[in-house]
Amino acid sequence: MEAGTGASAGGGAAPVRTHWRTRLSVYLNTNGRRLVLGVPYLWLLLFFLLPFAIVLKISFAEFAIGVPPYSDLLELTQDGYFRLTLALSNYAYLFDDPQYVIAYTNSLRIAAVSTAFALLVGFPMAYGIAKAPKGPRTILLFLVVLPFWTSFLIRVYAWIGILKSNGLLNNLLISLGIIDDPLVILGSDWGVYIGIVYSYLPFMVLPLYATLEKLDPSLLEAAHDLGCRPWKAFLTITLPLALPGIVAGSMLVFIPAVGEFVIPELLGGADTFMIGRVLWNEFFLNRDWPVASAVAMAMLILLVAPIMIFQHIQAKQADGEGAGR
């Protein structure tokens, strides 16, 4: 550190020691943008998008005994040509066997009914939280989110002890004299509804809260002022303006619910067949990877429309937030 040479801005440290840091910083400042985008982009391409291509490929393969248990689509034949075999049998199988069709319709029905229940329970909660004074509002929001941080599996498990035929709910109802014979909830569709609503309620409440909180209270006052009664004002003003939140929340419940495995497995009956469960069984019990892949592809096709709707709302909201700044 000679006098006079250290006059530059970073002049404290010796140049040798900062050498690699300087080079790194030059690299980051010039290529930072590419790096920031490139790393997550590549990761998602490789580990999220590519797998779907592989699932698609294997869904056209045939079951084979071996490791891995499926046939190759491309084969090098003796005379030097590649032979492409697309086995459509897996898909045909899905339509032929009524078990799959029932599983699909069951999944859609159960997911839809559960979403409706979640909306019914979640809307007043979100509405009440949005209307609450600032202090309680933070606490209530926190209480909505907290269960989400505790184990999903354990929260589903908690219901077994409650819903069993000799469980806490039936014991309570019988001791109160409301019913004489225990209700069969565990092992029926009702158990699955309760489980889905319970597990996914925060996902319904949060987007609803976000839209309701942004709702300008003077809009409702204006409606009242123009002669609109509260209930009608709710229908003509609050509900339409909360629609993005309703759709987003419903999608967040509906889509994962269609493919739900744990809840029907633990709370549903042996006959509560949902696609997630069928896929699991094909894979783990029958070890039929091609059919499992075909089941997955069929489920994805069912879910494409809801997922697109969800993404559209996400993008629109992100744009709205960006434009608001």
Binding site: P40, L44, L45, F48, L49, P51, F52, I54, V55, M251, L252, I255, P256, V258, G259, E260, F261, I275, G276, L279, W280, F283, A292, S293, A296, M299, L300, L303, P306, I307, F310, Q311, Q314
Partner: peptide
């Protein structure tokens, strides 16, 4: 790709 995993059913993600 960034928002699809939020709603993708676990069985599909797991299998793929």
């Amino acid at each position: 790709m960034l928002s699809a995993p939020l709603v993708m059913p676990d069985v599909i993600t797991g299998l793929s």
